[in-house]
Design a binder for these strands. Structure first.
Lengths: 340, 340
DNA sequence: TTGTATGCGTTATCAA
DNA sequence: TTGATAACGCATACAA
């Protein structure tokens, strides 16, 4: 079943059939109706491979994310896939894991599949070393590369991100203004965004005239982190003699671990201890007490990323290279901010 | 850059280049080396569209899931994508939503993209009415259709699922054996699996000689359900005068809602009230007290589904049409089962 | 408005 | 072991 069958059935040439399929205006209404009827009757669908061969595109976007079982990344993939579909693009999904070589291999694979663009979801794709980011620049020579929650200044690379540093800065300042000045920062990623968040914490302390104590900053360096891991981390901090009246974390799951510790240690929250998470997911409403967290506007990021990509495809001359959204602090019951 | 460039560079015909690329044995070692060197040097990659046109496949599998921001479905997609990649297949992801027409449209779209198979993730794809499942049977005439957590007995359709009914049956029996006989069942889906779970609950009561009270069975008919929704549902049940000493739910999030209600009503868990969830996700460890839940072996389901698909592709004559796994009850602190 | 002819880059068949 | 050539199904430039 191909274009020739429609051609035979209707008595017009394949060129005309093709014109009807592609909505060309240079077809008489009568012919168009006849062709459309035949297509309907025979249930004909154009062969995408043949089309792809000629046009060198199959309207497919490669999506790379480290691990789409991570709720944050899963939601991002969800929004992106929806937006792409609205624009008639399909999504070729690749969960690359966190290993650099695997990411690079995956990129090569996607490019060999002739995707029209690649979207890198999550700040873990941007490394501190230029050398490690090279494969992204190389890819960008072939197709547009979109970064969600990451930033890289290079030709044909477009970044959409949330100002995580400012968000953590604001949270930290709120802690301090509310009288919690002995703060611990718990984080689990040295990614681009992870580093920026930490800087936000440091800056807030500095600007409040509070010295940054390095033993109050604790990295749990692992992916697929559990509540138990976080609980252990905070417990071991206490064992080392670190004292604190507030904990700020880079992820809700870490904050829940702190809550579990606090319950065991019979600390009263928020009286004895303020706790804040990041991402504002389900779990921040499941835990007890419910968690103050930061909503980093993931849906906006994703929508904007796709609409930017469409502008790039449309050869729009005024496409923003970098767009930054502001996060929003959602206060629940693990803090009691002093408002004034 | 195409196969002719390699041909020119090496002085052999494109046929021979093609043979080298595809690992044909009928090539002299010397020629092979020469061609391989040229491919490497020029950085040549075969055009997948041309290849697809000839072979009528691009080694791509369509994955349909209602909503990959749902943690359960997200994890399923993750496992499936990984397994497919191991077998050199790519994943074309489509989040269809829960509307039947959208699902059908999406299926048509995937088939028009000439995917090699379609994997339907989640029990929501199987409807009670045969009419509504028709589009799946139609699709199965073109490509194999794999069901994860769903069942449909039809040619070229393969089902992999977990025995949810037995799991809920076992949980309910454990409640009863532990002295909790006045049970509420809270659920949020009338899908294939949702119905089966409910049957498990009913059967356990019947076999224990406990009459099934319909006002103890509560459906919250909505997707994207929140903890608050579940809390409200259980509260309104109480307002109606329903009394109970145990709540079994079809999803962890519902169970967390019950916990939130219990805290407010100052019920002691598990003394006054047993609660059990389903899915055994993060949130079952985040809530307080931590939730007894059912692990339904999602990873096994997904791995098995993909390996079955590979058998189908390999034209293996002994492919199982339906495979059922057993769930595992993970007891935490919202129950205190009597073991004997 | 319509038709003819060509190219897109492979793989596979057949002949050498 | 190798090469020439015909599909594969479509879009499009050009001709009519």
């Amino acid at each position: 079943m191909n274009i020739y069958d429609i051609s035979n059935k209707t008595g017009v040439s394949i060129a005309t059939v093709s014109r009807v399929i592609n909505g060309s205006s240079n077809v008489s209404e009568k012919t168009r109706a006849k062709v459309l009827a035949a297509i309907e009757e025979l249930g004909y669908t154009p062969n995408v491979f043949a089309r792809g061969l000629g046009l060198n595109t199959m309207k497919t976007i490669g999506i790379m994310c480290a691990d789409c079982s991570d709720p944050y990344l899963a939601r991002a993939v969800y929004y992106i896939e929806q937006e792409l579909r609205k624009n008639s693009y399909d999504s070729l999904l690749s969960c690359t894991g966190y290993d650099h070589d695997d990411k690079e291999k995956c990129m090569t694979m996607l490019l060999s599949k002739r995707v029209d663009a690649v979207i890198l979801v999550g700040s873990n794709y941007i490394e501190a070393s230029e050398e490690l980011n090279k494969y992204i620049l190389t890819a960008a020579k072939t197709v547009p590369v979109m970064l969600v929650n990451g930033e890289l200044n290079a030709p044909n690379v477009y970044s959409t991100l949330c100002d995580d540093a400012a968000a953590i800065y604001d949270v930290t300042r709120s802690f301090i203004k509310s009288g919690k000045k002995n703060l611990v920062y718990l984080y689990n990623s040295l990614s681009y965004s992870g580093t920026r968040k930490l800087n936000g914490f440091r800056n807030a302390l500095k600007e409040s005239g509070i010295p940054v104590q390095e033993n109050h900053i604790c990295l749990i360096d692992s992916h697929g982190i559990t509540v138990q891991d976080a609980k252990n981390a905070i417990a071991s901090l206490v064992k080392k003699g670190v004292e604190f009246d507030g904990v700020i974390t880079s992820d809700d799951i870490l904050a829940v671990g702190v809550l579990k510790y606090a319950k065991e240690a019979e600390l009263s929250i928020p009286d004895d201890l303020f706790v804040a998470g990041y991402n504002n997911f389900d779990i921040s409403e499941c835990c007890e007490p419910e968690l103050t967290s930061v909503d980093n506007k993931l849906e906006s990021l994703c929508r904007h990323c796709v609409s930017t990509l469409m502008s790039v495809f449309a050869d729009d001359k005024t496409v923003p290279k970098k767009t930054v959204f502001s996060a929003e602090i959602i206060e629940r019951n693990t803090t009691s901010f002093d408002k004034k």
